[in-house]
Simulated scan of single mutants.
Amino acid sequence: MEFVQKYGIYGLGFFAQSLFGARLIVQLLLSEKKGKVVSPTIFWQLSLMASFLFLIYGIIRNDLVIIIGQTLSYLIYIRNLQLKNDWVKFPLIIRVIIFALPVLALGWIVMGSENKLQDIFSNSDLSHPIIAIGAVGQLMLNLRFIYQWYYSEKHSDSILPLGFWVISSVASVMILAYASYRLDPVLLVAQGMGIFVYLRNIVIHFKARAKTVN
């Protein structure tokens, strides 16, 4: 039973990361096709689904780094859908549910078990150098969306700018170090694949800029 439970949890994590991976693959393919970095609607739709599932994974794993990260980025995904004028296309009841999901999940941490908060904080000793690196890396992965959000608001459009991919690349290396310490196969696979997409988008960005200059 413990074996099934353990790998069921990993299955949830891998499924969430597969959605994160799918959003990057679709975004990269569309960017390659257009010859410039694009921000498609499906990127943000998949982000929302994956973020909620990975938040649940982080709660089950008592991983404060993941919990903080997914909570911060969730609303930014919604805002990007608003900027693309796609949020209003969701039925009202679906929009209410989407807003409520992370609140319910976090409420479960506080109300669901007396020891849950204690387990999360005891499992997340930020004084440990590697855990601190993981926390900073995860914070950077979410700050990149704050940066992306600011950039998009400034241009009144959903955009994935160069700085977004640079921050992603640096943060990915930091989280890979953290995942190696935690022996977390989900994070190892996700960031190992993600860093390739991040670097490739940087290349596409500079190619598109070179064409503009010429």
Rank of each mutant, 00 (worst) to 15 (best):
G58W: 05
L46H: 08
I67E: 00
I109F: 10
R95W: 06
V110L: 12
F20Q: 04
F52Q: 06
A16D: 03
A50K: 05
G58C: 05
V110M: 09
D119N: 14
G69M: 02
A22W: 11
M49P: 00
S31M: 10
I78A: 09
K89I: 11
V26E: 05
P91T: 10
A50H: 07
K116M: 13
I59P: 00
Y57E: 07
Q45A: 08
D63L: 06
L55P: 00
I68V: 14
A16S: 08
A105V: 06
F14N: 00
W44R: 06
S51K: 00
L46R: 05
G112M: 09
L106F: 12
L81Q: 07
Y74C: 09
F54S: 03
I60S: 04
N85R: 15
V96M: 13
K84L: 15
W87R: 02
K33W: 07
E114F: 10
L101K: 05
K89F: 01
F14G: 03
R61V: 05
S39H: 02
F20S: 01
E32R: 15
F52M: 06
L19Q: 09
Q17E: 14
L28N: 11
K33C: 09
N115T: 15
N62K: 05
Y57L: 11
I67L: 02
I56V: 15
L55R: 00
Q118N: 14
F43V: 05
I98H: 04
S18Q: 02
N80R: 04
Y57A: 06
L48N: 01
S18Y: 07
S47I: 03
S73F: 10
K89V: 10
A22K: 04
V26S: 09
I78D: 07
I42L: 14
F90H: 13
L28I: 11
K89S: 10
L55N: 01
P40S: 11
Y57I: 13
A100G: 08
I78K: 02
I94A: 11
V65N: 12
F99V: 11
Y77D: 07
G107A: 02
L53T: 00
I93Y: 14
V110H: 05
L28W: 14
Y77H: 15
S31R: 02
D119M: 08
I93Q: 08
Q82Y: 13
K84I: 12
G112L: 08
M111G: 12
L104E: 01
L104G: 05
I66Y: 03
I93W: 15
G21P: 09
D63H: 05
E32S: 01
K84Y: 05
Q27I: 10
G107Q: 08
I94R: 01
P40H: 09
L81S: 03
P40E: 09
F90Q: 07
I25L: 15
W108P: 00
S39M: 00
L106W: 12
Q82E: 12
T71Y: 04
L53D: 01
K33T: 02
P40L: 10
Q45H: 07
I68L: 15
